[in-house]
Amino acid sequence: MFVLAEMKDVIRITPENFHQSLTESITTLLNRKLANKVVLNVGLCIALFDIIDIGHSYIFPGDGSSHTEVKFRYIVFRPVVEEILIGKIKNCSREGVHVTLGFFDDILIPVNALQHPSRFDETDQAWVWEYPKEDGEKHDLFMDSGESIRFRITSEAFEESLPTGPPGTECTTQTVAPYKIVGGINEPGLGLLTWWEAPEQDDGDENEEQENDE
């Protein structure tokens, strides 16, 4: 779910930071620029991994800052489509189930990708998987917020976001999520971890005990 992205950038270091070493300044500036930001078609940037190459530094007329071309690698959150991830349910709505990973929130499991048949419980504001029992009755499996959920990534979408105004000013730009992930749990084994744990846990424990005995 994490990858390294190779990037190239020109870093401008202002004179007041000249007392620091070049690599230190570059690291700080790159992290300030990219950490916790989504780069279009790359993913959510987490932290600087390493600096591959530092080019020559230039000073331009009228500006005391140095400009350095840097090649670097950055840790990026970019799960592969079809990958299986485990997250927590943030909330449920009519659209589907919203999942969070803590550092990344824009994950939606749409209604058509839930286990079938599912219904939305208005009073609890939760989706319920109506698991059919052998005797023809239904067993309600609730998807409450905060529960761990295993899901498959079915698609991803990047959205070019508009620039926001300077900090402090009230700019009425609609906030769209720059990077969205669509997931699915309509396969056996996917969904809340507790759904699939119970019967298998017994087997697993027995096996472990046997192994331990040996």
């Binding site: 990858v3 390294l4 992205a5 690698r73």
Partner: peptide, 9 residues
């Protein structure tokens, strides 16, 4: 800024 390799590793 430019991304040279989206998925280097």
């Amino acid at each position: 800024m430019e991304t040279t390799k989206v998925n280097a590793a």
